[in-house]
Every structure is written in C-alpha cells, then in structure tokens.
C-alpha cells in the first residue's frame, strides 16, 4: 500500500519516536526490554541510536538553555540598521507631538480611523529601505518589515488580505496564537515579509488585544468576510497597499 514511500528502516526496526520516548524516560520497563532486545540483534538500529545520541549532544552543547529571546532571522539582518534608524526618527517625530503623540489612543478598542498608528512598516526594494505609508504602491518582491507601538503589553498579530482574496498570517510566523509584546514605541518586528506576485490591493490588519487569541480562526474569518472587525477588547489598525507590476 505504501510501497512508493519506504520507511527509513525495516518494519521491525525502532522508530525515531521510540528512541525519543526512550531518551525521555517515557517507555515502560517492558518496552525498554523489547527495545534493548531488538538493539542486540539489529545493527541499523544501533547505528540510529548512536546517531541520535550524537545529535542530542551537539544540540545541547550549542543551545544548552531554554531561549528567552528570539533572534532575528538572518533574512532580515540587512534591515536592522536602516529600520532602527528610521524607527528612531519616527519616535523622535512622535515625541515632538507632545502628550497627544505616541500611543495617545493606543488602548482604545475598535478599528482605528484617526490618530497615531499602532502599526507601521518599512519597505525594502533592492538596496533601498524607505518608510511606508497606507495607500502606498508596492511591487512583487518588495520586502516589508512591520513596526508596532503599544502603550501597554499587548498580544499582537498581523494578517493580510491580498488582491485575490486570500488571507495570510504575517506575524507571528509558525505559531497558532498571537504573540505577547511589551509596551513599546516603534518596535521593529523580527520577520520581514516578501511580497508575492498577486497584484491589486492588499490590506494589512494589525490586531492588538489584551489577551492571547488564536490566529487561524481569525484568518478564516478575514478570508470569508473580507474585512476584520476588531474582536471584543481588541484594537485593529488597518493599512492598505496597492501592488502593481514591477516597473
């Protein structure tokens, strides 16, 4: 039935799952006895166990403790200095606005119409990095890096609805739920997004909530309803881009 998809080792061999449960002390004594007996007569499984043990040792030598901070992706390393400088400039400009400046309405639930933005972005095209604004023209291949501001710790996600009506999760990447960010002004997020070839208007929604929320239901809702109304207790900041063919 699965002849086209071969297992790495024979049907009788121990799986990586069994080895990992063994390393974690999760196998009961009977399964340990069976596994040891199998190892006694199976060279490939002995080799596999040795390989997994070497890999474990290498990993723990390199990353011995639970991470407390997320490193930036290599992909976005080029953005660091330019965005930091530009974000610093934004902060400076915002600060000059006085008490009504940064974050003046940032804890007001609802969809932002006017007032300071919680969500902004930078665009990299070729080697040039510029600060973006809602309504801006962008091109396939442009890279966006988002910057968020929040007056208090918030759970944040960024979603997009592209010109074909497809909704995507831009931030956080690879997680099921929103990410909690500390209160901060003009904080560049760690990931950059490369725009694909779908042309037309692309709407970007920054969602800021007091508590954690699931991403996939929100993405499905956005795709179905083609807009995102702020969930209860949350604020949504919306940007619109116009993606046109590269000149």
């Amino acid at each position: 039935m699965t002849a086209e998809i071969a297992r790495p080792r024979s049907e009788r061999c121990l799986s990586d799952l069994t080895f990992d449960e063994w390393f974690a002390g999760e196998l009961d004594p009977e399964r340990v006895r069976v596994a040891e007996a199998h190892l006694g007569e199976c060279g490939p499984c002995r080799d596999r166990r040795a390989e997994l043990e070497r890999e474990r040792a290498r990993f723990l030598e390199r990353s011995p403790a639970l991470p407390v901070r997320r490193p930036r992706r290599h992909r976005t390393a080029w953005l660091g200095a330019a965005v930091a400088a530009a974000a610093g400039m934004s902060l400076l400009v915002s600060t000059w606005r006085g008490p009504g400046g940064p974050g003046a309405d940032q804890d007001t639930p609802g969809t932002r119409a006017k007032g300071p933005r919680r969500l902004s972005f930078f665009v990299k095209r070729g080697e040039k990095v510029t600060e973006g604004s809602s309504g801006q023209q962008v091109e396939p291949g442009d890279q966006l890096r988002f910057v968020v501001s929040a007056a208090r710790p918030s759970h944040v996600a960024i979603l997009s609805l592209d010109g074909a009506g497809k909704a995507s999760i831009y931030y956080p990447s690879g997680l099921e739920a929103s990410r909690r960010l500390e209160a901060q002004v003009a904080h560049p997020l760690e990931d950059a997004i490369e725009l694909d070839a779908v042309l037309g208007p692309e709407r970007i929604f920054g969602v800021f909530c007091g508590g954690a929320f699931e991403l996939e239901p929100l993405r499905r809702k956005l795709e179905a309803e083609r807009t995102l109304v702020a969930p209860a207790g949350c604020a949504v900041d919306e940007l619109e881009l116009h993606k046109v063919k590269a000149q």
């Binding site: 990992d20 990993f59 723990l60 991470p67 956080p172 990447s173 690879g174 997680l175």
Partner: peptide, 29 residues
C-alpha cells in the same frame, strides 16, 4: 529532554538550521 528532537525534526522538515532553531523557540515559548 525534548528540544533536540524538536530541532532535529524541524530541520529535516524545513531544511534549515536557522528555521529549525526558530521552531524550537516558538514551540517552547
């Protein structure tokens, strides 16, 4: 106990040490 396996499997699925390390961080955080 478990991060080495998370890393090993993520690296295999994504083909990148950097991406796999991010998966480890995402999973445990």
């Amino acid at each position: 106990l478990h991060a080495p396996a998370v890393f090993r499997r993520a690296r295999r699925m994504l083909g990148s040490d950097v991406e796999a390390q991010e998966i480890v961080q995402d999973v445990f955080l």
